[in-house]
Design a protein around this nucleic acid. Structure first.
Lengths: 302, 302
DNA sequence: GGGGGTCATCGGTTTGTCCGATCAATGTAA
DNA sequence: TTACATTGATCGGACAAACCGATGACCCCC
């Protein structure tokens, strides 16, 4: 039978795929170029498989089989680190590095309150943050380049395990002097008759706002905002109305503007802040332990 | 950071979990007892985790963390072998060992025709067969103790990837001289008024026959058969009627009896023979290549 | 045609793994 | 209680493998 590849060999392989260059890959693996070259050679020999296309000049070109092996090597290395991580998690819960992805409609407003709370509860935890759209975060989560995500549900989390944290109510944001501002509350139906400003495509807040108003998601805007801050400025400029999450308001997104905020009539509407991770992640128990702290610090109503 | 565990260490760990005994585990790993003992010790030291409960006499007792690490070790080793298997599969498709699970209502009747066809098409393929109920096969497939399953769809394949192979029509099997035998075809509705004999619980054929007749699956039988052969004998003895798959009849399950076979009226009814494997299995492409051969040899109508 | 750059190859050194023998602890039978 | 058998842990020495630095072969660009 074919001998099992060494983890080191798989590291060499993935590094080579990442850098497309023997020297830099070797540097990333903290070995000499000769070692990495020999490692790849022996791997090819042991598996009896052509991983690199060595006919194509001096460039690093992977064969189709090589590409597949790279993917499987990544999986194997992830499974291997999962063993070590499970041990780490059991020994010292909620310590060490944790790579957390946050969506742009949460990050700037909630993190200033979340981080101190997390630091106080788990002083040993080092949160590495990455802000991006949900889809990109989910992609990185699946590729094992993030450990967990802080997103707004419902969303397409690509099979990840999700844990709801807190409700984040939507509030109507109106230009100063807008007719709807005269009432204490704004009915949802009234909003649909206004010119509803939204974030650009890709932001889950856009889809959720549309869903709340009962509009179809495929709608084309003449001018979509790229962030909540610019969206607020457009509303303040009288271009239309919008829905803002309570957490963003608490985070000061409307500070310095004359925007009028009105709660929605009836049962209201909200998004749910949630934590997402890969199913079966070694540190899943830690994420569950982290959730109450996040929920306690994120609940906009206190 | 915690150093990654060696594959050898993980082998030691899983072997120890399998055998619950250092000496036998070491033997299974083809190393000396001292080596395995030292290997487990260094693993515990490197991960800084208590894997074994060494307070409990001389017995091998795993801590809860140890149990989890064993599971993750199995996954990591499987992912590691998957790399090698992917290389094997690309180098020599449909050769080497393949562990195939088959359900009891397919195995005895179809395999005598399937095996020669497979041998002719892929001389290098060595099929290791295991016959069991669908649920147990699915369990073994998930545990990486089987590579693929030959089952009857629809069934609960536990998230496995399925590929339909061929239709296997149901035929009414009646005792000699039964009133329904006078017609050329038997309407399904007529069967529900008869005393319908079935296999015992756990056989998917039982559930499929009930579904075909529009009966509820929870039904209790006074006397359920344990195999198609005994079921046929009971029908021949006049105890009732049943549905038999065409493939089993072609396989000679009714040979030597006076049972009367009649096709079902109308569109008829059938089960679908299908191949199942783990999603993302390294040899998935091979299973797809194997399918036409299986389908060609299994189609009862030729 | 020279020079920089890139990957493969070669000896020498170091590191780590494994084995056999032995020790300590436990459980069992006389 | 004593003697024995079994089991897991420890130790020193031998072997193998991984790694490094230097060098070689090749390509591309100037």
């Amino acid at each position: 039978m074919t001998p099992l590849p060494t983890p080191q060999q798989l590291r060499f392989l993935t590094a080579l795929a990442d850098h497309q260059h023997f020297g830099r890959a070797a540097n990333a693996c903290a070995v000499s170029q000769s070692t990495l070259s020999a490692g790849i050679l022996t791997l090819e020999h042991q598996l009896d498989a052509a991983i690199l296309d060595r006919g194509a000049g001096k460039r690093v070109v992977f064969t189709p089989l090589g590409q597949e092996l790279v993917g499987r090597a990544r999986m194997a290395l992830a499974a291997l680190t999962a063993v070590a991580e499970a041990a780490d998690a059991a020994r010292a819960p909620l310590t060490g590095p944790l790579r957390l992805g946050v969506i742009p409609t949460i990050g700037p407003f909630l993190l200033p309150r979340l981080m101190p709370a997390v630091r106080a509860a788990f002083p040993g935890l080092r949160l590495y943050l990455r802000e991006d759209l949900t889809a990109r975060l989910v992609e990185r989560l699946a590729a094992n380049r993030l450990d967990a995500l802080l997103v707004a549900l419902p969303c397409d989390c690509g099979g990840g395990e999700t844990l709801p944290l807190a409700r984040d109510a939507f509030v109507a944001a109106l230009p100063p002097g807008h007719p709807l501002a005269q009432a204490e509350q704004v009915p949802l139906a009234a909003l649909t008759r206004e010119r509803l400003l939204l974030l650009e495509d890709g932001h889950c807040l856009r889809d959720q706002a549309l869903a709340v108003c009962g509009l179809h998601a495929g709608r084309q805007d003449e001018f979509a905002a790229t962030s909540l801050h610019t969206l607020v400025q457009m509303v303040a400029g009288g271009l239309g109305v919008t829905l803002l999450p309570q957490s963003a308001i608490a985070g000061g997104v409307t500070a310095g503007t004359e925007i009028v905020l009105r709660p929605l009539a009836g049962a209201g509407a909200w998004r749910t802040l949630g934590l997402v991770w890969r199913p079966g992640a070694p540190r899943a128990a830690e994420y569950r332990a982290l959730a109450p702290v996040l929920a306690g610090a994120s609940c906009p109503a206190g």
